[in-house]
Simulated assay, not measured.
Amino acid sequence: MTEPVTVLGLGPMGHAIADAFVAAGHQTTVWNRSTTRPTPDGAVRADLTSAVAASKIVVVCLLDYDAVRAVLDPIAATLRGRLVVNVTSGSPDAARATAEWAAGHGIDYVDGAIMTPTNTIGTADAVLLLSGKVETDALSALGGTQTYLGTDPGRAAAYDVALLDIFWTSVVGVAHAFALARSEHITPSELAPLARGIATLMPIVIDEHGARLEEGRHGGDYSNLRSAAAGMAHIIHTARARGIDAGVMEAAHALTQGAIDAGHGDDGISRLTVALESA
C-alpha cells in the first residue's frame, strides 16, 4: 500500500484529486467544510483534525488563499511535521505568505498550480506546476507532466496567473466576437470555422512575442501599433453601434494609443509588454 494522503476540499478539482489517489492505491482521507459534497468512492471522510492526523501528506484544494488560511490556522499544531501541498489558485504573493506562515509553524510546504481540467487528473494529460523548498513526488498519482519550478514558493502561482491571463482574455474575446457576429446576423456555426483559423495564429504570436522580448527587439516588421490601433478602433465602433459593451477592447486600444503617443507607433505588439511594465 502506498503512503496515506489527505485531501482538504471536495470541489470538482479536489474530488478529482481524491479519486486519483484512491485509484493509485493510496489510503485517502478527505474533508470538506460543507457536508453536501459527495465523498469520493474508496475515500474515508473525517472531521478536519482527524483528516489531517491521518496522513503525513495533506493536499489542499480550496477556493482561494483566504479560505486556505481560515482552514489551516486553527490546526497548525496538528500540521507540524507534515507536508502541505497547496494546489489552490491564487497570487504569487499569497503563495509566499502562506509558505512563510507554514515555515513559522514547522510545516513543510509546496505550492502548486493545476493547469488542466478535472477530467485530466490521473491521466497522462494532466499538467501540474510545483514550487517551494521541498521537491516532492507526492502527487505522482495525479499523472501527467509535473514540473518543479524551484524553491521560490510563489513561482508556480506566477506561472498560473500569467497562463490564465492568456486563457481568460482569449475566452472573453471569443464571447465578444460571437456577440459582434450575431449582431450582424452571422450565426455561430458560420463564424466558428473561421474563428478556429484565427486561433491557430496564436502559437506563432506567442513564440514571436517571447523571442522579441528576450532580444529586446520590437520593430514592427510585419505589423505595427498604428495598424493594430486602427483595427481595434473598427471593433470598438462596430460594437458601440450595436449596443455591445466594448470596454475590454477600449482598454486595449488605450494601451496601444499610449505607446503610439510615446513615440512607438512603428513598433510591433511586443512593445505593449514594455509599456505595461513601465506604467
Rank of each mutant, 00 (worst) to 15 (best):
V87P: 01
G42S: 08
D19L: 14
G42D: 09
N224H: 13
A95M: 05
G14E: 06
V171N: 11
D261I: 01
D19T: 14
T36W: 06
V248F: 12
G265C: 03
L62H: 02
E3R: 03
E215V: 04
V87N: 12
T123E: 14
G231W: 08
Q27C: 01
T36K: 15
D108E: 15
I121Y: 04
I107L: 07
V161L: 15
A51L: 09
N119F: 12
L130K: 02
N86K: 02
D66G: 14
V22Y: 11
G265F: 07
V22A: 10
L129E: 07
V44L: 12
A46E: 08
G219P: 00
T136H: 10
L180N: 04
L72E: 03
V68W: 13
E100V: 02
L139W: 12
D207G: 10
D267C: 08
G14I: 09
L62Q: 07
H218V: 04
G112M: 04
L83M: 05
R226F: 11
S183W: 07
V110S: 12
T2Y: 04
S270Q: 07
A95D: 14
E135K: 12
V85W: 12
G247F: 11
N32I: 03
A157C: 03
V7I: 09
S223G: 05
A138V: 05
M249K: 00
L62Y: 10
S183P: 06
L129I: 00
H209E: 09
A156D: 02
A228G: 07
H234T: 09
A23C: 05
G243L: 08
D221E: 13
T147I: 11
I244A: 06
T200P: 02
G197Q: 15
V110A: 13
P38R: 03
N224Y: 11
E214I: 05
Q146P: 03
A239R: 08
A195S: 04
T118F: 09
T49A: 15
D165G: 13
S278M: 03
V172Y: 11
L225I: 01
V172Q: 11
V205Y: 15
L255Y: 03
G216Y: 12
M232K: 00
L8S: 07
A246R: 02
A211Y: 02
V161F: 15
V84D: 04
G231I: 06
G268R: 04
V5T: 10
V59R: 09
I260P: 02
Q257R: 07
V248M: 15
A102G: 11
H185M: 07
T273C: 01
H176D: 15
R69C: 09
Q27S: 14
P40E: 11
D152Y: 11
